[in-house]
Design a protein around this nucleic acid. Structure first.
Length: 333
RNA sequence: GCCGAGAUAGCUCAAUCGGUAGAGUAUUGCACUGAAAAUGCAGUGGUUCCCAGUUCAAGUCUGGGUCUCGGCA
């Protein structure tokens, strides 16, 4: 449907970005916003990019996606790994296409590194994963230990070693991979640049306690909606449980249940706990994002928020201010 | 009612001969640029069920009580 109204000037030419922890309501805000503005949703969620993983990733439904243009959903089979670098390229070109249509790109998603790849316009070393080399390095990791591998990195690329966690095998393997393939220091191949377009960032948040309630009951609903069947069908399609896609929250625990390692009850509880942990992880990134207008979803209605967005870019608070408010509230009760 | 086992971090449990109460998980925070819903690191958290006793010293030994689980009636 072509957009006939004139786009508010304060939104013209900018990429809109909605961030926030899983389950806080980003997708809903995006859909509601699409009723008032000519936006195309661009996915920034690493798991919603995979096909056949609909229930557990809380992917927007087919009906929703036919009403509002959605991009970068269902672009990979579960066994076709999507990397950050590939995501960044796809998101960049998608954003340009949306602009070319005269519409507003709305980046929505909870994968902090994906968001950062666009917001900070990350320069990512052009070294595709080399399965053979990785297998070899992982063998060393297993047999000779992480200290051995880290010492090798110190010898070959001391500058990257300096900023790499000596205990984090996976990061060390990647650093070695970059050096062995290019002969150059990973540290010098990466960096941040100014973004390609003006960005307007909006964050949704709420108290941790409330978030935990939200995602817990959302998982119960996913179970009622057939998450176990969906998980089983992924295995029946022959996808290996070790695939990154199948490490997704919920799926990972339910696979352990299907393998007889956990009771269903244990698996569901573990999935909830892992989701809480993921929320913590997301916030460690969000706290470092610049210039996000944060809103407590329990303190403002979607309608009020949209009214603000369409008139002028809303002045949200900082996470620190909101956290302090929650702390005060907790003390008072 | 009798017999047995038990009670330790929010939860599940460990603690040698009586000698500074630990682990997993939860929870909180941090790091993390081609696996990122991944991966790594750290912090908080204790009336060791209660009372009395023995001892320089008790989660640990003794006595009493309370509660839980199992078995027998």
């Amino acid at each position: 449907m072509p957009w006939t109204d004139e786009l508010p000037r304060h939104l013209t030419g900018s990429v809109l970005v909605i961030v926030g922890p899983t389950g806080v309501g980003k997708s809903n805000l995006a859909l509601a916003l699409a009723q008032h503005l000519p936006v195309d949703v661009v996915n920034a969620d690493s798991r919603q990019a995979y096909r056949f993983m609909d229930i557990g990733t809380a992917k927007p439904t087919a009906a929703q996606r036919s009403e509002v243009p959605h991009h970068l959903f269902d672009i990979r089979e579960p066994n076709q790994v999507l990397t950050v670098a590939e995501y960044q390229q796809l998101a960049r070109s998608t954003i340009n296409v949306v602009f070319a249509k005269g519409r507003v790109p709305l980046l929505v998603g909870g994968t902090p590194l994906y968001v950062r790849s666009i917001v900070h316009n990350l320069r990512i070393p052009k070294v595709a994963p080399d399965p053979q080399l990785r297998a070899q390095l992982e063998g060393d990791l297993e047999n000779r230990g992480v200290e051995f591998l880290y010492r090798r990195l110190v010898d070959l690329d001391p500058e990257t070693a300096e900023i790499t966690d000596p205990r984090n095998g996976r990061r060390i393997v990647r650093a070695l991979e970059v050096f062995l393939k290019t002969g150059k220091s990973k540290r010098h191949l990466e960096g941040e640049r100014n973004p390609d377009w003006p960005l307007l960032l909006l964050g949704l948040t709420c108290s941790r306690q409330r978030l935990h309630q939200l995602v817990d009951s959302r998982l119960d609903n996913m179970m009622s909606a057939g998450l176990l069947v969906e998980t089983k069908s992924l295995l029946e399609k022959g996808y290996c449980p070790a695939l990154p896609a199948l490490q997704a929250l919920g799926y990972r625990s339910l696979i352990q249940h299907l393998q007889g390692k956990l009771s269903l009850c244990q698996a569901v509880q573990q999935a909830k706990h892992h989701t809480h942990r993921y929320i913590r992880h997301q916030y460690t990134w969000f706290r470092r994002l610049p210039e996000v207008a944060w809103f407590d979803v329990t303190a403002i209605s979607i309608g009020a928020l949209i009214a603000q967005i369409t008139t002028s870019w809303p002045a949200g608070q900082t996470l620190e201010t909101l956290d302090a408010g929650v702390a005060t509230y907790d003390r008072m009760r």
